[in-house]
Design a protein around this nucleic acid. Sequence first.
DNA 1: GCACACCTTTGATTTTGATCAAGTTGCCGA
DNA 2: TCGGCAACTTGATCAAAATCAAAGGTGTGC
Lengths: 245, 245
Amino acid sequence: MQTVTEHRRKDIHNSDIPAVCSACEARHGGVCGTLTPDQLLDLSRHSTRRRVEPGREVVGQGEMTDSYANIISGVVKLSKVLSDGRQQIVGLQFAPDFMGRPFTRESALTAEAAIDTDICSFPRNVIERLVSEAPGLEHRLHEQALKELDEARDWMLTLGRKTAQEKVASFLYIIATHIDPENGTATEFDLPLSRADIADYLGLTIETVSRQVTKLRKDNVIRIENSRRVTVPSMDRLMHVAGID
Amino acid sequence: MQTVTEHRRKDIHNSDIPAVCSACEARHGGVCGTLTPDQLLDLSRHSTRRRVEPGREVVGQGEMTDSYANIISGVVKLSKVLSDGRQQIVGLQFAPDFMGRPFTRESALTAEAAIDTDICSFPRNVIERLVSEAPGLEHRLHEQALKELDEARDWMLTLGRKTAQEKVASFLYIIATHIDPENGTATEFDLPLSRADIADYLGLTIETVSRQVTKLRKDNVIRIENSRRVTVPSMDRLMHVAGID
DNA sequence: GCACACCTTTGATTTTGATCAAGTTGCCGA
DNA sequence: TCGGCAACTTGATCAAAATCAAAGGTGTGC
């Protein structure tokens, strides 16, 4: 599931065009979905596709506004840090999402790959030009922003009001529902984050995360093959532990 | 500052038109700013202005998507609750903002006035019609969504990684910078939230909030006239305590 | 002026999760 | 197959914030 099948040549046969997401429209409803064939071709000429290794920055703090990208496969962590190094992951972007901040002042965000991640990026000005031509595109970007806002607010409830146990269960539930959206909620999956990343996502320490994962295992809420691989026998049970009604 | 001056008759003299924000465009750059005079008139015919008392719901959980509103004066709390009653305020909307979720599935949010609040609201379908006519309007809404997303993510860092002391200082800083945006950062202001609300915003208990406020006072970071009125002698000092570099 | 309600503060104690400190496990290259 | 190292787990102790429990304040109606 982590590697993407080569499905792009279906639409575009010109080998001068870099490998891009022009054909992704069906697969992951990226920005491409709202464009005309001409605009798609235009976009593809300015796009570059590349693989980002875990821990590598997709775009640096502040540069976020300079480019815009579809995530083809993988998971990207968006995080913020305090001056003394305390870190908080403020969002996870999964494969069908796209990333970037058109029109806004830079936000002090770091975006880095959590696992091997393929992205397809284009310069900001190209997107802005296309937005002015294709009214549907801004609508698409707006919806993505609203979706991220909803997710951020859900997560605020988790960060502010849930116990460590509920936080870890909530995290597992998020991963189960997002890791392979095409196939719905997954009952068996690889965690895309290390214990340290999970701690930074949940506002906990790695020791607490580890202990709570152990507790969930002992309580038979999850099964653990190795530290990354998780099986959820009953999603209802997990949701209940996560405090999701 | 809490009461709004009557400045609406400047533009619209027809007494059939309900009291609306048609004239707010300059004052608070609400949705009106991007509309033509005709569209403004159209909008104003469908708007109702009303005052909402503290604690009153502006729109209920789930209804959020059915209407759309400019906040003329006051402060609105957006909150989420767990089934057992634990509550988290996930956003504060101040006077020049507008509220509502066009195009999206309902999000389980409650919006209620924190203090006396004047709002001007219109049905969702009117906004959606105007969006399809005025391309600039969607752009405006999109920018508002991105602004709220940035604020939500900043707050996630506070919720997940700051101490109680830093959280309370961060809260005071937010209020200082948002309570009267026209006049920049305020050094003396009334808190729009009770201790219980502050606790729900910060993911703390009221006792902890109270103790931290007392500590900030004893450390001369703030002065307190009564439990609501706060003076900040040095904004730099407050920011430092809040962990804002 | 008084009583009641509500909000806030303060104090004592408990609990949750952080911190400090070893161990394990598993993976990779030699 | 064996180190070596990084990631993870587990245990012991500590500290920050929650909880439990009383007081203070402040405002309102009587």
